[in-house]
Design a binder for these strands. Structure first.
Length: 409
RNA sequence: GUGGGUGUAGCUCAGUUGGUUAGAGCGCCGGAUUGUGGAUCCGGAGGUCGCGGGUUCGAAACCCGUCACUCACCCCA
């Protein structure tokens, strides 16, 4: 048997309504905040990701799906959404257009990690990128959007944590001898991550690391004050976490993350931050930007089981008997052409089998068509809840059913 | 890359110190009702016991190997 490869997952029809709910909610809130959808390729040249995400990150070092194109060019399946969006922004010279420009995207991402709960090799993210505004209110805007859309999905135990990148390198150099080898390397490549090291000695060594309040430059300090003030003003609850390092290397100033209880080890639902240098670093103009991404699998994991998904009102055509079966098939198609969701089980021979199928499909009405009806050019429509039946002519079927289906219950 | 757990029907799982033809519930198909669904009763279909080797008169069970899934470390959404 050919099986799906490790770390990917099929979403069977029972689950897709939940996913549509998540996607629709995210898109609705993004539109409400003025973000427009952008669709970029799921693979790009490898250098794009290496240069944006950071050459020494785990993602670039060992988690990318990289392969050679026929001409030898190194291509990579996107491990996140920001790099491709920024590339498109530069390539189409959007910096020349009026700002701000606010984009959102939705789609699969790929990282070669060991799968576990809430982590797959092909996973899905919804993200937003806001280009062109360095005002702290742009930070607040995306954080607010993130919080509102997650809250709207009624996920339990949400926490928004924020932090600012302090000047750490000098401090870390002073305690370098007490750090693990991994962390010594990180001092240069990603000093923030040292604070998040799980090795007890490292945690102890960084206990006295400069805190938020006393490590910011005056400009950063002002940005920070205005972001927190903005969050307060719009009523977004948050916690400051001076050890928060989640997110990619390109984040500057603001970095934030929303975690969700009841989620197991992978409790980060969404994360983001400001990345003012990235557009320029990738060859574009100096355009400030801020954004976030949420993991759809992790949201789906947290979504209450009892979310009710509206099912369309449908009908079932139960045509039994040799002649009726053919006429029924024609009627079925006629119903569909007039926009009435209708179905029929071509295997069923007995009326009993048809009705069982109709019941299973949860239809509102069943169209009964047997020898008796064929003889009079009519059908019997049965209300599956009240069991009321009425006999109508073929020609009246679509309009009658359309009227019945639109009735209120 | 490193650990732990689990692999028996479509799904959830039993299966005794190793012993005849491997079971149940749910689901599926049919019948009871030759034209009326859900409930009940009856019947039926459905299995490489993950795979390979070994021990044994005999293995779903014991041993070795292997693969898959899963949880966790790491990292991240």
């Amino acid at each position: 048997m050919i099986k799906a490869i490790k770390g990917v997952k099929d979403l069977l029809p029972e689950e897709t309504p939940r996913w549509r709910l998540i996607e629709d909610t995210a898109k609705r809130w993004a539109r409400c905040y003025g973000f427009q959808e952008i669709r970029v390729p799921i693979f790009e040249t490898t250098t794009l990701f290496a240069r944006s995400i950071g050459a020494s990150t785990d993602i670039v070092e060992k988690e990318m799906y990289t392969f050679a194109d026929r001409d030898g060019t190194s291509l990579t399946l996107r491990p996140e959404g920001t790099a491709g969006t920024v590339r498109a922004f530069i390539e189409h010279n959007r910096a020349a257009d009026p700002r701000p420009q606010k984009y959102c995207y939705l789609g699969p991402m790929f990282r070669h990690e060991r799968p576990q709960a809430g982590r797959l090799r092909q996973f899905h993210q919804f993200g937003v990128e806001s280009f062109g505004v360095s005002d702290p209110r742009a930070d607040v805007e995306v954080m607010s959007l993130l919080w509102r859309l997650l809250s709207d999905l009624t996920l339990p135990g949400l926490t928004l944590e924020a932090r600012y990148k302090p000047v750490l390198v000098a401090f870390l150099k002073g305690v370098e001898t007490r750090l693990c080898g991994n962390c010594r390397r990180r001092i240069e490549t990603n000093p923030l991550r040292v604070l998040d090291c799980k090795v007890p000695d490292c945690r102890q060594a960084t206990d006295d690391a400069p805190r938020l309040t006393d490590s910011l430059s005056s400009a950063a300090r002002e940005h920070f004050d205005r972001v927190t003030a903005g969050l307060d003003a719009v009523g977004i609850p948050y916690r400051l976490n001076h050890r928060l390092v989640r997110g990619l290397d390109y984040y500057c100033l603001t970095a934030f993350e929303v975690t969700c209880s009841h989620l197991g080890a992978q409790n980060a639902v969404g994360a983001g931050g400001r990345y003012d240098g990235l557009v320029e670093q990738l060859g574009g103009a100096a355009v400030p930007a801020v954004g976030f991404a949420v993991g759809l699998e992790r949201i789906a994991l947290m979504l209450p089981q009892d979310v009710s998904i509206e099912t369309p009102r449908r009908v079932y055509v139960a045509a039994f008997g040799s002649e009726a079966a053919d006429i029924g098939f024609t009627l079925l198609d006629e119903l569909r052409r007039t926009g009435i969701p209708a179905d029929m089980d071509f295997r069923a021979a007995s009326l009993k089998a048809h009705l069982r199928q109709a019941d299973r499909l949860g239809v509102l009405y069943t169209v009964l068509l047997g020898d008796d009806e064929v003889a009079t050019g009519s059908v019997t429509i049965r209300n599956m809840q009240t069991k009321e039946q009425e006999n109508i002519q073929f020609s009246e079927l679509p309009s009658t059913l359309a009227a019945r289906l639109s009735e209120q219950y």
